[in-house]
Design a protein around this nucleic acid. Structure first.
Lengths: 206, 206
DNA sequence: CCAAAATTTAAACAATTGTTTAATTTTTTC
DNA sequence: GAAAAAATTAAACAATTGTTTAAATTTTGG
């Protein structure tokens, strides 16, 4: 029956590469086939349509996107250490996959459907108990009286945006990729200090 | 010679609307023509090609994008007040044009050319003297020893990203547009406090 | 080794793409 | 008001789009 598992995987890898860099609208199925080194018909043989193939790639990307978050939240650390580690791990992760934030946000942005995020993405995060840990820390007066939604916005802004704005930032300051990467590293440290300083009250209950 | 200035403007307005929401690759010239309520050929009569029309729209968007920044920097305020006002004004501006950050970053991201930003965009900013004001404040010990590039990254991240991530954030938290807008307002205040607290040393020279 | 199944290919499909041509309508100019 | 210029249209163009068909090739199972 099955002859070569690797063909299906090769197509997925090529599709991921092409979709990530050019976006759904910015590429043709022939672009992907060329990347695979095969015929266009093969793509539809395995994945029915361009749209179906894209949905598969997007789901995988979204899963990766949320994975590093879950790993940190599942640990047995204090909230302060979790926040610090989250910033660290997410930065390291996006250093390896710098195109991911843009791909996710752009795909959602141009997605016609307002379909809600499937629960299999969100439940694992809720199941880490991070929300309860946050509310308890707030109740104990260890952190500021700020909503977790606002903390999330703060974290995502500072972790995702720099990777999305590489071209704008490089052109804006007229700097090289090396200089930009230096700025990225420094930014990570600034954000860690900034957010932990803001969020955590130095003398709890005092 | 000229009959109706408004036709050219109507096409530009339609192109702006369509390009902004769907992106260059996500729309056809016929989409724009339909938005205008006229023929496709009219677009090329006025603007030669889809690409030329897009470049025009993009340049205008980039100009708007940087304009609110220049207005604040040109004022006679202290650095601290400028930073605070910048966040305020940029937020208000993007409330009116929420699709602008995504359009700019996405267009740059998929732009094949690595052409540098034209100087007519950057010079007005440099001419405000903001860079000198920043370095002087640093020399006086009023602000932290952090590069202006890192401050820029901090500001842009927190000001642009929330408008780009609306769909992700709404789906992530399962909230309505009204709730999201409330979060946005709160985010603005948090960012103002966060960045000014971080950047400005409370007791200079001490 | 041979038939059946699975895989891969080339070719064609109708629809859509950006652009151009040429004709028509509207406006301007004198 | 008639000739000239400008604006607008319909139609066609070649190329590209996603998808399908049918034939060819390769692999599998007995």
């Amino acid at each position: 029956m099955k002859r070569d598992q690797s063909t299906e995987e090769k197509i997925k890898a090529a599709a991921k590469k092409v979709f990530m860099t050019k976006g759904f609208d910015g590429c043709s199925v022939r672009d992907i086939a060329k990347e695979v080194g095969s015929n266009v018909a093969l793509l539809n043989y395995y994945f029915r349509s361009k749209e179906k193939l894209f949905e598969l790639i997007f789901e995988g990307a979204m899963s990766d996107f949320l994975q590093s978050m879950i790993a940190v939240f599942s640990s047995e650390l204090s909230l302060k250490e979790k926040v610090s580690q989250l910033i660290d791990k997410e930065f390291d992760f996006f250093m390896e996959h710098p195109e991911l934030p843009m791909f996710i946000l752009q795909s959602l942005h141009q997605n016609k459907t307002d379909a809600p995020m499937p629960s299999h993405f969100l439940e694992p995060i809720a199941n880490t108990g991070i929300f309860e840990q946050f509310e308890q820390a707030k109740a104990r007066g260890e952190i500021r009286d700020v909503s977790i939604r606002n903390v999330t916005m703060l974290l995502m802004s500072n972790v995702h945006y720099p990777f999305m704005s590489k071209k704008l930032t490089k052109q804006f300051h007229g700097i090289s990729t090396e200089e930009f990467d230096e700025d990225l590293k420094k930014h990570k440290e600034i954000v860690k200090e900034l957010i932990t300083n803001y969020l955590f009250i130095s003398n709890p209950k005092a």
